[in-house]
Design a protein around this nucleic acid. Structure first.
Lengths: 163, 163
DNA sequence: CTTATTGCAAAGTGTTTGCATCTTA
DNA sequence: TAAGATGCAAACACTTTGCAATAAG
């Protein structure tokens, strides 16, 4: 989705995070930077537990508490987005330079597909106007059965498929 | 939203649940019926814990385990809907004879407003067609700040406001 | 050198499970 | 009276918190 190479992207993202930390009186710790790198290395949605295991497997010294703490900062500066796909486990995904999209979730296997439809913004605009408030974000999920879903079909509305 | 009185509605709902139980080889227990009654007595979204406390306060003998068990059955037969409004607490609401609607959630106080916009069905239909699968349900939530929301304004798109 | 941050473990919270007891069909 | 349901408590899973040790600025 991005015209940038991944190499440039991670640099951009680190710069953004670094600036955010400085501007908000937070310290730049190696843990925070390595969590950011690890997240931008992931192509799928992830939970805190999964990220913790991945980092442990890479022999990175990290604690769950630090991951939770850092994720709060990353949400605050807009570098990741938090989702709740109907389970009591928060799922996160990187959000810098990624096209806005919504999710199609398989009720059987939990697989998450992404799609986008411009009409959601029209609905959001209407809802904003009718209620005279600023909507900060939205979450649109469709739930279905993916046994009929062909993963690799080329479809301009499907951005990517993720587990 | 319903043309029925509440008295008739609870009778209809009990009949539906009763039929569902019989048809699916489940037993009709007083606990299951009283949980259903309690839920249809509520006008707001509720969590399992809240329902448990409400029933305990009414001196009804009930356990959390039975509530969780019964709620599964009620979801299965379509009498209630489960929501996850971004927190790790499942919220439920009765769904019989209530107009389909989506939610507008205040990021500050957690208040939940309801609205409906027919365009969501057009998006759903497109997504179904493009992916050749049956979408079973959807969840659309807008998140904003309700200090600018006037609760009592008459607006045809706002069905009701709930906490 | 001061104070934010880390990491561990303990505590918290919502949900699920195991099992003895009870009850519907 | 046999299989299913209840209720309690223990177990679970995810998240938050307390606090001593550490390290950024």
């Amino acid at each position: 989705m991005s015209a940038m190479s991944n190499t440039n992207q991670i640099d951009d993202v680190k710069k953004l995070f670094s600036d955010y930390l400085v501007n908000n009186g937070h310290r730049q710790t190696p843990e925070r930077i390595s969590i950011l790198s690890e997240i931008y290395d992931q192509d799928n949605h992830f939970s805190v537990e999964l990220l913790y295991i991945i980092m442990k497997n890479r022999n990175l010294s990290i604690s769950r508490a630090t991951i939770y703490n850092t994720i709060e900062l990353l949400i605050d500066c807009g570098l990741i987005i938090k989702h709740q796909f109907g389970k009591n486990i928060a799922q996160y995904e990187k959000s810098y330079a990624y096209k806005q999209h919504d999710h199609l979730i398989c009720m059987d296997c939990g697989k998450v597909f992404e799609f986008c439809d411009p009409r959601i913004h029209q609905i959001q605009k209407t809802t904003e106007e009718m209620n005279n408030l600023k909507i900060v974000k939205h979450s649109l999920n469709f739930y279905g059965k993916c046994n009929t879903l062909e993963e690799n079909k080329s479809c301009k509305y499907i951005i990517s498929n993720k587990v």
